[in-house]
Design a protein around this nucleic acid. Structure first.
Lengths: 230, 230
DNA sequence: CAGATGAGTTAGACACACCTAACTCACTGC
DNA sequence: GCAGTGAGTTAGGTGTGTCTAACTCATCTG
């Protein structure tokens, strides 16, 4: 049984998982080291070390022993294809199938390894060529180019300032449910009404509502400031 | 990296491929032997023999050395879940994404191993709970029950008889394209106008058209006779 | 009914990706 | 600047699924 080759550079499921994860860590501006990847993928450091070596041998990453890896041009192209599949699948699951945005990441992790290019593109057309996943992260285009992640941390909003949510931290399903229940989703306009300097809580107006949110939530929101209010 | 477990009885991709194939051979009323499965899955007889042993050990098939296998109740349940996923995916690809019915089998073979139950059921709802795949084969239900494949070979139609196509042989993409071009798809009403006793060709009316078809095509069609013509 | 033939099985190896345990490196703090 | 510590690597082993080559069984034919 041949390992499911979606197309082109015939990567194993494991390689795809590692590459996509390296890509995401890099996109967040962090160094990619063994422990981080091991922890995120739920494997041992030894396995990760071994895979780094393999990926380096294949020209997909640069590997500096005891320091970490970063993607080569080729690795970046490969990784972006996987991330692209992942985020398109997420959109499909939420927009077409109505599955909650807190579950789609896990499902997409399974499905992203077995989606032929032609099916991917048909789904994209059906969705109207979306620019982002449901959480606001950019979908790489066919050529592997990815827009910069939209928004800046909502922590830097001062009292009185208005903004639009562009993107939210997608790593914790519980947090995502929490955000959804409060209407804190990409596209929502918010205004910081009060900022409590002691504990960092904010009183926000979000759409029609007013809510008090703690640091954890504020840090999960990435926004663009809005100057003139329509 | 854990092998993608869609749910429940955590079967590897390979096991799923073997089980589904055994299921299909059995559903066609044939004995399931090593060579047949090996050839259909594109693996060696040795690999197939080894897998038969493993599946037997796990209680998924009965295995008679040098003779063949047949599914146990449990194996049948497992296999029907995979076939169900396969056929629902095919319907999704044709009906929602507009992909040609000659390509969807290959795509479904990849995708069927990585479709969580919840996503499967959402797709089924979206499709309106279809009974068959695009080629007319029955979709097993949630409980693993499968209707008998509809239709009987069109070969037994006598000159003058009318029938409705219920199902077509799905094994050859080229043949499927051929059938599609001639409108010979499930639901089409046909009538045998002439039957050439020398070479077995038939002159058919199919929908609006009249066509002459050879044995190969006739054998690929499974029909139900229609007595009264509306 | 005996031997040839072909299908099926067993033996032995390999690749992949994982693990734990032991070792090694690099940096931090005294 | 050297020891301790924690992160990273290497060593060695396991399970799965594949292969080829060699053997064995069952059946068909003369």
């Amino acid at each position: 049984m041949v390992e499911a080759p979606v197309k082109n550079p015939l990567l194993s499921t494991s390689r795809e998982d590692y590459l996509a994860d390296i890509y995401r860590i890099q996109a967040a501006g962090q160094n990619v080291n063994t422990g981080e990847v091991a922890q995120r993928l739920g494997v041992s450091a030894a396995s990760t070390s071994a895979m780094f070596k393999r990926l380096a041998q294949e020209g997909l990453v640069h590997y500096e022993s005891y320091s970490g890896v970063w993607l080569t041009k080729e690795g970046e192209r490969a990784a972006s294809r996987i991330v692209r599949r992942h985020r398109v699948i997420e959109r499909f699951l939420t927009d077409i199938l109505g599955i909650g945005w807190d579950r789609v990441d896990g499902f997409a992790n399974l499905m992203e390894h077995a989606l032929p290019d032609e099916v991917l593109e048909a789904i994209e057309r059906l969705l109207g060529d979306p620019d982002t996943c449901p959480h606001g992260y950019p979908i790489p285009n066919r050529s592997g180019e990815t827009a910069a992640p939209a928004g800046h941390s909502a922590e830097m909003l001062a009292a009185g300032e208005r903004a639009v949510i562009r993107r939210v931290d997608e790593s914790d399903p519980g947090l995502l449910r929490h955000l959804r229940e409060r209407g804190l989703v990409p596209g929502t306009r918010i205004r910081v009404q009060e900022l409590n300097p002691i504990d960092g809580t904010r009183t926000l107006s979000a759409g029609e509502r007013t809510l008090v949110v703690g640091q954890r939530i504020v840090r999960a929101l990435f926004v663009d400031r809005v100057v003139d209010d329509a």
